[in-house]
Design a protein around this nucleic acid. Structure first.
Lengths: 339, 339
DNA sequence: CTGAAAGCGCTTACAG
DNA sequence: CTGAAAGCGCTTACAG
């Protein structure tokens, strides 16, 4: 591989001059510039990333710390990943994807060894053990997912509480009086999925405020079981006219369950979910839903991170940004049938 | 951040001695060793990855070049990614995930700048434009996916031809005489998905050899359309008793289509698919299938790559490894109903 | 058993 | 407008 020294020699200039031409950090006579560029071209010169990183203290790489949890829905996960890597690349950064089970350890490894200029934490849990590591390092980091204590951190997440309220509000406005909410399985909450009860609590509260009944039930994350869960739910609460889904497996399974029971939305049952449009398309889900916008969250997070990297300690305070939910109308809700 | 110089000073030894202790590449008196280790511990020393890479010419990072194609099924994609990153990490490597649309350009960037010690190419097309770049560099690389011309390259893929034969064979042995095969949409073939016709051709041939009828039809990659495609197929060929699926969307949609038509497997229709067990679980698919083993392919590919990195030009010839298909029996095939 | 020195390939103050 | 030199933080022949 050609080095900057080779380029300099071929162009007949000093290494520093060659370097300045490549980085463009100095005005240079057009003639010299051209000679250097031509030399670089003819040698197929590309700067050695490691050497450059050592000299500039910038790797132009960010770390993406993901956790591939069981029962996690793959499509959503992949969307976060593509959102982050895509945005990073557009802005000149590559992405190191790390998914070790021991996230705290992985984070420490990346930051201590200066492999990356910053990190994005995915799947942030309520009491995430990566946060102490992040707080202790001077490598900038941003979170996708709101932890219990976000103090001092930049956080991006969907506003789950507002989402819960919005779902209830929407059905209440249509005249529904009895609702059911299918949430994630309990072990998802147990491992730190606080978003589950953030949505749930807000929905309960809103229902209470409006004098509605709301039955909240956890559902399985896999199909054979979730189908039965849905049947059981509808058997147990025959007066329910509005169904809220905060469980992707439930959303995927519901069409066949409804088909089996001869139910149509919104004629017999109004349905509103909470998942991404991409997810809806993959599974061709006919239900209105609150968009979870994983790509947008990834993009926002990366932009913020690069700002932190570019302007370390610029005084702008850490910020928790909760994305306002948007309801994508797919026509699955309407007034309840008269009875 | 502490450097090796800091460690040396605190331990009262030279930098080289400190380095030798850290790398373990020289025998050392236990006393010195302990002093150095203690100094490193107290300073929280971790070697700077960039500096180490510059000195050793090893980054301990591999590049994973993925293409996020439209209509690609996310679950499968994520499995390849986790297979590669997981195996790499186990063996001491981190993974740089790159998914730019211009794969050839991305590959050139990674290899020219020596950001990685080797690369894994995912989604390899029949005439993949990344291959010339890979052949031109001395950075080792392996492919997941068989291209039209694999000469000189290490390739890992499922044996799609054998898979096609196996599916036909399996149903033929049960007594089926008329089969249908739902393949990927035409544009997947058009963009280089040679595996589609590798399976198809072999299936056709095997059917012909056994005197069976085999209707091959492309199916859409999304749900609203693929459901109609399946209905149309069953309407058009009422004598079909065995259905082969080489299309994940079709597999996901089939249960509800069969339900709608009052069909049960294997009573009314024998079904065998070609997808991963993970995929089957996510969608709770009740059909027997040929395992596509994305995690295993990822693992094999990384192991091979690291072998190439560790032993460059050791003379062992490049190898195309086609994984022998295995049929996972989920009880969806049986003898055709007597008519 | 250990150290002084060179070198990996860049960038960038410092000088002219 | 350009160059010689120092330095980034490691590793590793070379010497003793």
């Amino acid at each position: 591989m050609a080095t900057i020294g080779d380029v300099a020699r071929v162009a007949g200039v000093s290494r520093s001059t060659a370097s300045y031409v490549m980085t463009g950090r100095r005005t240079m006579s057009p003639a010299t510039q051209e000679r250097v560029r031509e030399a670089a071209r003819s040698l197929g010169y590309t700067p050695n990333a490691g050497a450059r990183a050592l000299a500039t203290k910038q790797t132009m790489v960010i770390g993406l710390l993901a956790q591939f949890l069981e029962d996690e829905f793959a499509p959503a996960m992949l969307q976060y990943i593509t959102g982050v890597t895509g945005t990073a690349r557009e802005l000149g950064y590559d992405t190191l994807l790390v998914s070790e089970p021991d996230g705290a350890h992985a984070l420490k490894r990346l930051t201590d060894s200066r492999m990356v200029d910053g990190v994005v934490l995915l799947n942030v849990a309520h009491d995430d053990d990566r946060l102490p590591v992040l707080r202790a390092t001077d490598v900038p980091g941003v979170l996708i997912g709101l932890p219990g204590d976000p103090s001092g951190l930049d956080v991006f997440d969907l506003d789950f509480a507002e989402s819960g309220r919005m779902m209830v509000e929407h059905l209440a406005a249509l005249g529904h009086r009895e609702l059911a909410l299918v949430t994630q399985p309990e072990h998802v909450v147990a491992r730190g999925g606080a978003y589950v009860w953030r949505l749930l609590d807000a929905a309960q509260e809103e229902a209470h405020r409006r004098g509605l009944r709301l039955h909240a039930v956890p559902g399985a994350s896999g199909q054979p079981q979730i189908g039965q869960d849905l049947h059981a739910l509808l058997d147990t609460h025959p007066a329910v006219t509005g169904l809220l889904l905060h469980n992707e497996a439930a959303a995927a399974a519901l069409p066949s369950v409804m088909y089996a029971r001869g139910l149509q939305a919104p004629r017999d049952l109004s349905v509103v979910g909470r998942y991404s449009d991409e997810f809806a398309r993959t599974f061709s889900l006919p239900f209105s839903s609150i968009e979870s916008a994983p790509d947008r969250l990834g993009q926002l997070a990366v932009r913020r991170l690069l700002h932190r990297i570019g302007a370390p300690g610029d005084g702008s305070p850490p910020q928790v940004l909760l994305l306002a939910p948007e309801l994508v109308d797919r026509g699955s809700t309407g007034a309840p049938a008269p009875r």
